[in-house]
């Protein structure tokens, strides 16, 4: 597998004499991976995300993204084209008066010629399902539409990597579902994804989960293996999704042993089939 992101022994703090926010943090991400980054508030998750496109630079250690060293100032715009970032607050990400102008803004900066630009706006707006909203003013969109418009602006630049920093935490359930669908679609199209989240249901959609504490990765597993150890999350006061919690309780009574199902519908099917197995 080809690594597309390499973080090597990163140290970072906002002020000298402060505790480290990133403390010897290393991570390698393979092309096409979908990584969920979990951890408590203050564990360094968002700081790590901001290292990936040079919004922050480490005090020591190196970050390599799509073959570019992020510390290389001359290459920073290449890095930002390759690794796009979507933030938590849908209201803080627009610069233009209409959705299409906002998508065009990034393309203009990248020096894309007009014909190509129009083509890309058309393509990405269909991809995220906002083709009817291109002439709308961004502030009139719903939260889910705003986040998808922000995503469209980024994928128009054809990035290899996308970084999502708690992008659904301010959305209602409908908006959240829309954005999650878009994310699944992008990953299927081959984009590597780093998804910072507090939501375990969201983490279940990733391929791999890393858990950060005090600026370090303390666990790095496939999503399947990560969730087979529910006590790890429970001792950190994370509430498990209901269907997982129920499986844990049944297992204690010797019912439905074996691996925990990571999909609610699959679990419900297994559960409903139970009496006939007896």
């Amino acid at each position: 597998m080809q690594p597309i992101i390499i973080c090597d022994q990163l140290f970072f703090r906002y002020q000298e004499e402060q505790e480290w926010i990133l403390h010897n943090f290393s991570l390698q991400v393979n092309k096409g991976d979908w990584i969920a980054v979990l951890g408590t508030n203050g564990s360094g998750k968002s700081t790590f995300a901001r290292m990936l496109n040079g919004l922050l630079q480490p005090e020591s250690g190196t970050v390599t993204v799509a073959g570019y060293e992020v510390a290389d100032e001359e290459k920073i715009w290449n890095v930002r084209q390759k690794a796009g970032m979507v933030f938590q607050n849908p209201d803080h990400q627009f610069v233009a008066a209409t959705v299409q102008d906002d998508i065009a803004f990034g393309l203009e900066n990248a020096g894309i010629e007009r014909r190509e630009m129009l083509q890309r706006i058309d393509e990405v707006s269909k991809r995220v399902g906002i083709e009817d909203l291109l002439t709308a003013e961004p502030h009139r969109l719903s939260g889910g539409q705003k986040q998808r418009a922000a995503i469209a602006g980024i994928i128009a630049l054809r990035p290899d990597i996308m970084i999502f920093d708690e992008v659904t935490s301010m959305l209602d359930p409908k908006g959240r579902a829309e954005v999650m669908e878009t994310m699944k679609d992008l990953n299927r199209a081959g984009i590597s994804m780093i998804m910072i989240t507090h939501d375990l249901e969201e983490a279940l959609m990733a391929d791999r989960v890393i858990f950060m504490e005090k600026g370090k990765t303390i666990r790095d597993r496939t999503v399947h293996d990560f969730f087979q150890d529910p006590d790890f999350l429970k001792t950190r006061n994370f509430t498990l999704p209901y269907f997982l919690e129920m499986q844990v309780a049944l297992k204690k009574h010797g019912v439905l042993l074996g691996n925990l199902s990571l999909s609610e519908s699959e679990w419900v099917d297994r559960l409903c089939a139970l009496p006939s197995e007896m």
């Binding site: 209901y242 309780a249 009496p275």
Partner: peptide, 27 residues
């Protein structure tokens, strides 16, 4: 979860049960 169980013939009351309690019903 409890609605799906009801549909499959389990006797589950329409109350909001904690996961441990719903597991108890199954047991």
């Amino acid at each position: 979860v409890s609605r799906a169980m009801q549909a499959a013939g389990w006797e589950v009351a329409d109350t909001l049960l904690e996961p441990e309690a719903l597991a108890g019903v199954v047991i």
